[in-house]
Design a protein around this nucleic acid. Structure first.
Lengths: 202, 202
DNA sequence: TGCAACTTTGCAGACTCTGCAAGATCTCGC
DNA sequence: GCGAGATCTTGCAGAGTCTGCAAAGTTGCA
């Protein structure tokens, strides 16, 4: 894999510049109080260019990195490569857990992003929609690992939905505490509770 | 509770008329190929009136009934009234299960609605936002029943997220089969799998 | 009946997003 | 080096969404 050319690097950089400009402005003023023109001006591009990178305004908050699709593909690959002998659900949870390292690394950026999302829940599901491209491949991978059928069995879709719930709940709690409690600690607790079938914690 | 006046009844009727017109047109042509003007014309009102009833175009597909908020409140009340001695998760599942009767009753309408949503996942965004108003009260009710704290414990939010996953997965599968398999049957299987902690179904 | 409250409507206007075509910039082979 | 072709940026025109406001029409109630 050779070094990507200048054009490619500029593109990634522009993407990131716009995304961070959007994050900054929207964190200050709120989603509705920031127009695409504002973001484009802050990032030093034209409004039209903004839409070359992001289909809708909300995506600028959510798509932190331009290589979104590849990252999802890598996650699937890591899931498939999980050691044999463990069930699909814990294997999937372990895979997602690894991805949380990215979040910890850009900690402040993610806390800002989650704070914005908390203030505007429409963003939350937009995030889910953005992931919908990797949804079917993920379900297929889960089906294969668990020896089920992606079309006919409920199990793979359900697993993905529940794991998504675990992830979203953890991120949201982590942000609500402003990062005071380690994200992985929260995530592990949530995953364990789900794996136990949500018994009353008395 | 006296009979609501003419004004009130007209309002409910107008709401329903617009919602059904939107459902019909969008099912035929797709969300993007139908404008607010189209829907308003089909329903016999002005475009401005459309926005008196629905904040955004998507809501006309999603808000089947005008008394959305009260229905959510009733669901919470029924959850609180579930018999003692069962855990919060099965109690919540049982409550949601009762609401599925509404879906079965307006079966074709719901299959259409779910078909539209399947074709345009952006609608899911709106659906979640619409439910977010009842989110906190629900979490509070779950916390109370399970003897946990809505602020400090992960349990109530997690339960809601997982139950939401069960519901969404079930509806989506039901619609994918075009209603051939009974919704309650699918829902029960999904709920049982989640309650068991998602073990591999080998 | 007649006033108060509410609903509908048209209109002006801000904003989002798309298609198109011209111009700028990058890549790659020669 | 350098030029052809691919790709990216930009401005512009235009369709569509959604809001605020005030006039006009309806309904509720004394």
């Amino acid at each position: 894999m050779p070094t990507p050319g200048l054009r490619e690097r500029k593109k990634l950089e522009t993407h990131r510049t716009i995304a961070l400009a959007a994050l900054r402005l929207i964190d200050e003023r709120g989603l509705d109080q920031v127009t695409v023109d504002d973001i484009a001006a802050e990032a030093g591009v034209s409004a039209r260019t903004f839409f070359n990178y992001f289909a809708v305004k909300e995506d600028a908050v959510l798509l932190a990195y331009a290589d979104h699709a590849e990252r999802a593909a890598q996650t699937i690959a890591r899931f498939v490569a999980q050691p044999d002998g463990i069930d699909a659900f814990p294997a999937f949870i372990a895979t997602v857990r690894e991805d949380l390292a990215d979040v910890e690394r850009d900690r402040d950026e993610w806390l800002t992003r989650l704070r914005i999302i908390h203030g505007d829940p429409s963003l939350l599901i937009r995030a889910t929609v953005l992931n919908s491209g990797s949804r079917d491949p993920m379900i297929a991978a889960i089906a294969q690992r668990s020896g089920t059928d992606a079309e006919n069995d409920l199990f793979p879709s359900l697993l993905l939905a529940v794991a998504g719930g675990v992830l979203n709940t953890s991120l949201s709690r982590w942000a609500a505490r402003d990062g005071a409690q380690p994200l992985l600690e929260i995530f592990d607790e949530a995953a364990a509770t789900a794996a136990a079938g949500l018994p009353d914690p008395r």
